[in-house]
Simulated assay, not measured.
Amino acid sequence: MQFVDLSSVSYIGADIIPEIINQNQEKYGQLNRRFMSLDITQDDLISADLLFCRDCLVHFSFADIQRTIINIKRNRVNYLLTTTFPNCELNEDIITGDWRLLNFTLPPFNFPPPLYLINEQCSEGNGEFQDKSLGLWLVESIP
């Protein structure tokens, strides 16, 4: 994100770890760019056009993802842009804090096809994750 031109938007970065928030605020904070500590599964979010949620939900259990989706809908966010792996054929549950691939168009999520899919050109894992993408969904279309 440090290379994205955010001069014409209001950007709020969030994390659950206060030390990361403090570092980001010191390094990248500006009038239109601030950072705050919050728990996306339950804390009040600021109403927004877009919630950019990269490399987060892949670390959550199904239950915590469901809590997060409910929270996003409750807080009047219009669009969700989040990490998804469209070639993943089966979503597996984990304990929050672990990691695995997720395809949000498959059960138990059953999102509609994304409005837009941005392949990240991921080169990690010797090409194993080359389908790693950011999927864009209208929040009201998410079941």
Rank of each mutant, 00 (worst) to 15 (best):
V58C: 13
L57P: 07
G13N: 10
N75I: 04
L51W: 10
I40C: 01
I118P: 03
C88P: 07
C56Y: 01
N24R: 09
T68R: 00
Y79P: 01
L31R: 11
L117A: 02
R100S: 14
F104I: 03
K73L: 01
D15W: 14
P113G: 02
L81H: 04
L102Q: 05
G13I: 14
M36I: 13
L38I: 09
P107C: 06
R33P: 04
F111W: 05
E19I: 09
A48F: 08
I70P: 01
N103C: 02
D44R: 13
W99H: 14
I12S: 03
P113R: 04
P86Q: 06
L38S: 09
C56H: 05
P86D: 06
T82C: 15
C88L: 04
F52I: 10
I95S: 00
G29P: 13
L57C: 08
N75L: 03
D39Y: 03
V58F: 04
F52C: 05
C53S: 08
S47G: 06
F85P: 02
E26W: 06
N32Y: 02
R33Y: 07
W99M: 11
F85N: 11
P18C: 07
F85E: 15
Q66D: 10
L115F: 11
D93G: 03
T82F: 11
L106Y: 05
R76Y: 06
I70V: 15
F104Q: 01
D55N: 11
V9K: 08
F85G: 12
D15K: 08
Q23D: 12
F60R: 00
F85T: 03
T41V: 08
D98V: 00
I17L: 07
N71S: 13
F62R: 01
K27V: 05
A14R: 08
I65L: 10
T105R: 01
L117H: 01
H59L: 11
E89V: 08
D43W: 00
Y116V: 02
D49Y: 14
I94S: 02
H59K: 09
S37V: 09
P107S: 09
Q66P: 00
G29R: 12
I17E: 12
G29W: 14
R67W: 10
G97Y: 00
R100L: 06
V9M: 09
R54D: 00
I21V: 15
Q23N: 11
P107R: 15
S10C: 08
D43E: 04
D44F: 12
D44A: 11
